[in-house]
Simulated assay, not measured.
Amino acid sequence: MASLNVAKQQLRSLMKQKLGAISYESAISQSSIVSKTLKTFKPYTEAKRISVYLSMPSGEIQTDAIVRDALESGKEVFVPYLHKNPLPSPDLPARVMDMVRLKDLRDYESLKPDRWGIPSIDPTTVYERQRIFGGPDAQHSDQTYLDLILMPGVAFDRDPKSGAIRRLGHGKGFYDYFINLHKAKLSALGMQEHPVLLFGLALSEQFLASPSEGSVPVGPLDQPLDGLVLGNGDVESPTENKTA
């Protein structure tokens, strides 16, 4: 496990330098392409309840246009909210992520940026909102689930052996923990046949297309993706192991 963490940190450091060299204009152009790609992308167009990360000002695909399109299309849009774990334990993370619903476009536009420049939910409004792990409340959060999660990441690649799309996050484990809880919730609701789709959004530079660019180290808790939408308009999908 120690060697895995070291490998992940080394790749994050390399990617930080790589992403720091990407111009603002390129990031905005690639973000526009991703947004346009999603508008005709079946997993997105058919999803009724989606989660979208709210982007940092640089270093990743900007999601403002995606959030606006999803709200204007009548989708239920959920965004990340970080809070103290209600199940304190030495074996569990101290802070975890839930997804809370945006009420409408006006609500989204009212969000204030946090210290990283990310639009953030006001904690005082969380209990008024529908959320994935909110429990029984007036918003029926206990029956709420997602169809699609659009995820950020630091780097992505394709496993040369399995063909799986692999993701390197920022190291906090928020998404992996959330996805496992979401799977458990679907099981409790008797909806095992309705898996949430996991798609990454990435600048072209974040996809390591060949071993010479590096590879994404993963452990048993890291979630493989159903696909990756890139800033050049390509959609990378998992492939079967042709040598098996």
Rank of each mutant, 00 (worst) to 15 (best):
G135A: 05
E72W: 06
E128C: 05
L150D: 03
V96S: 04
G153E: 02
I22Q: 14
A155V: 11
G227I: 01
H194V: 12
L197R: 12
V52N: 00
G214I: 09
S89M: 10
V34R: 02
Q206D: 05
Y44P: 00
S51A: 12
I61S: 01
V6R: 14
F178I: 13
S212N: 13
P43T: 01
R166W: 01
G214P: 11
L181N: 15
D142H: 15
K48Y: 00
S3E: 15
A21S: 15
G200N: 00
P238T: 04
V154S: 08
V67D: 07
K16N: 14
K42F: 03
L19A: 11
A47S: 14
E236V: 14
K103W: 06
I22R: 11
A244V: 14
T243C: 10
P160C: 12
L19S: 10
D147V: 11
T125L: 10
G117V: 07
P88N: 12
A70Q: 06
E128H: 10
I33A: 10
R106F: 10
V216C: 04
M97Q: 08
A244Y: 08
R101F: 00
Y175L: 06
D157T: 08
S204N: 11
E109T: 12
K242F: 14
V67I: 15
D104M: 02
Q62M: 11
M151R: 02
L221M: 14
Y53N: 01
S187H: 14
E236G: 00
Q30C: 08
G233S: 01
F156R: 04
A65E: 13
Y175F: 13
